[in-house]
């Protein structure tokens, strides 16, 4: 997914050095730019996350913040990965220059796949509620993945369906359950990406807010799938020891509802 560049975007200095392929801009957030590039060899793709200088910040503050955020994200990714939480691997870090290189995840974000799947069903004429096995399966996997992350003491800070990916299977591992062959749109390992706002926390409140943001993201982006969010929560509830308490706390967060107006 490329983006039309209206205004000249800063390239991290590292991309000025030669490489086999030109960098490809994938997304442009408020904080960082994401490029597809290569690590070490032309055959090894990577995601390059670059935090450009912010002209409004005092240079000392800007450098300090950028370094801190790059390192924090890298640390959390490593911590998660070490404990088996499905996140991209860190390849290289240069906090002084404001970038981080991560394992390239081949696949697509859940937001896109889910919308494709919903549209495909609509075209096929399948009624809501029918043949939902795949969707339920995806929701379960999402719940498990988020639960794993919370279980190791990390909260994401920005859980949306754009920050969850479905990893394409590597061709070597052809599997048995090709359902009808064609539209296995919702298959694939769930990978959690973009830990730019993540932090270390075991507080129920933080975990509950993480879930609430995801719930509201489903509500505003995929209202037709929103009804099955309880499957996410059910799978989450079984994923680690403190999970049921978080679900209880989620009810309070919903009542307070500020975040509802934020995303509604």
């Amino acid at each position: 997914m490329t983006s039309i560049l209206q205004y000249p975007l800063p390239l991290p200095p590292i991309l000025a050095h030669p490489s086999s392929t030109a960098p490809l801009l994938i997304t442009q957030g408020a904080e960082a730019l994401l490029y597809k590039s290569t690590y070490l060899l032309p055959s090894l793709p990577c995601a390059l996350k670059y935090r450009p200088r912010k002209p409004y910040r005092h240079p000392t503050l800007d450098t300090r913040l950028t370094k801190h955020r790059i390192l924090s994200e890298a640390r959390l990714l490593l911590k998660c990965r070490k404990e088996g939480v499905p996140v991209p691997s860190v390849y290289a870090v240069d906090e002084g220059q404001g970038w981080l290189m991560l394992e390239w995840i081949e696949g697509e974000v859940v937001r896109v796949r889910l919308n494709e799947w919903l549209r495909w069903r609509r075209e096929k004429g399948t009624a809501e509620g029918e043949e939902e096995g795949e969707l339920r399966g995806l929701m379960e996997r999402i719940g498990e993945a988020v639960g794993m992350m919370h279980g190791v003491g990390v909260v994401h800070g920005d859980l949306t369906t754009s920050n969850l990916m479905l990893k394409s299977r590597e061709h070597a591992e052809v599997n048995d359950h090709a359902e009808g062959g064609e539209e296995n749109l919702l298959a694939g390992e769930v990978i959690i990406i973009d830990l730019g706002l993540a932090s270390v926390s075991r507080f129920e409140e933080d975990r509950a807010v993480d879930l609430y943001v995801l719930e509201r993201a489903f509500g505003s982006t995929h209202p037709r799938a929103e009804g099955l969010f309880e499957v996410v929560l059910e799978a989450y509830g079984k994923s680690f020891k403190g999970a049921p308490i978080v679900l209880k706390r989620l009810e309070d967060v919903r009542m307070r509802g500020r975040k509802r107006s934020m995303l509604g």
């Binding site: 890298a74 490593l78 691997s89 860190v90 390849y91 290189m101």
Partner: peptide, 9 residues
């Protein structure tokens, strides 16, 4: 992967 990451950090 974990070794590369540890080296990076």
């Amino acid at each position: 992967m974990l070794i590369i990451s540890s080296m990076a950090l």
